[in-house]
Design a protein around this nucleic acid. Sequence first.
DNA 1: CCCAGATCGTTGAGAAAGTCAATAGTTTTC
DNA 2: GAAAACTATTGACTTTCTCAACGATCTGGG
Lengths: 168, 168
Amino acid sequence: MQTSTESTVAAPRTSGSDRLWATTVGGDVAFLLARANALSLANAHAAAAEYGLKVRSYSVLAIAVSDMRPTQRELSEFLQLDPSQIVALVDELESRALVRREPDPNDRRANVVVATDEGRALFAEAHAKVAGTERTTFGSLSDQERMTLTSMLRRLADAPDAPDALPA
Amino acid sequence: MQTSTESTVAAPRTSGSDRLWATTVGGDVAFLLARANALSLANAHAAAAEYGLKVRSYSVLAIAVSDMRPTQRELSEFLQLDPSQIVALVDELESRALVRREPDPNDRRANVVVATDEGRALFAEAHAKVAGTERTTFGSLSDQERMTLTSMLRRLADAPDAPDALPA
DNA sequence: CCCAGATCGTTGAGAAAGTCAATAGTTTTC
DNA sequence: GAAAACTATTGACTTTCTCAACGATCTGGG
């Protein structure tokens, strides 16, 4: 979202479109959620980019580093991405020698993704930076609030899928 | 996200990849935020789709209906979309006679987007449905909590952009 | 007044991301 | 042991993103 080259500038002060906050969508929780996410994503992305990573690859690397030896299908499910995207992601990380594909001992169809030492080293650095931007993104919240937010978001994640047929 | 034809089923119970929640990203606020947003988006999208709208077009329509006569540039800025995407969005809505482009009296370069009567009628229906899914998405939160969430998210939205050079 | 520079909407091209079907190899189930 | 289900991969295709260019218009300075 806009690569702040140097002078972000001029004076877009109160952006000029702020009056639109008074609209229906402006008060919408879902809309706010999307905005906050976009912001958070942009910040994290900028940080990860310094290490040649996108948020996606960063996430995959993070999981690999955790030594849980996930299969690609597990990654696909957990990250909610199409299996083919996982292939591309792992391909890229593997080509940079940050992770390795190892055969799953329990299932010869499956690969298990593990981090290399380089991967761990890079992740350590990247993680510090990314965690830093988290403090930037959520800086306007107190620690207490951030915990509240986290717990609420986690509950949303666990919530049931749209039941699709609810009594009108 | 998966068109629940009929038997969504079998037993994906505890998805099988839930163990990955124990990873670094699993506890990440930003990650939870992304997930919650994806969920919210999927639900809203499903609802809007019943009226031939996507979340994007729904948003534009919502703003048009509000009678604030936004220019396309204002839409672009507020929705954080490239101007060319606004063109496409408005083109589509206009082709369905839901909105009209009117010349901005103050600036002959600019168009102002206004809703037609059909647009208003359709939005009224769509809005009801979409607001309904919001109750689904955020159903696991009490009204009190939802308000807290809203206020926190709004504060995040107002937060400053990444300052880009923070002491390492 | 007039010109330079910025701004608005539009178009078009190219990259990135998302979606989906098909396939080889492997496991599961009966 | 054969059929059905599953994993990773590939390829095609659509949608979305990002950016540069352009005509028309507005703004500010000389």
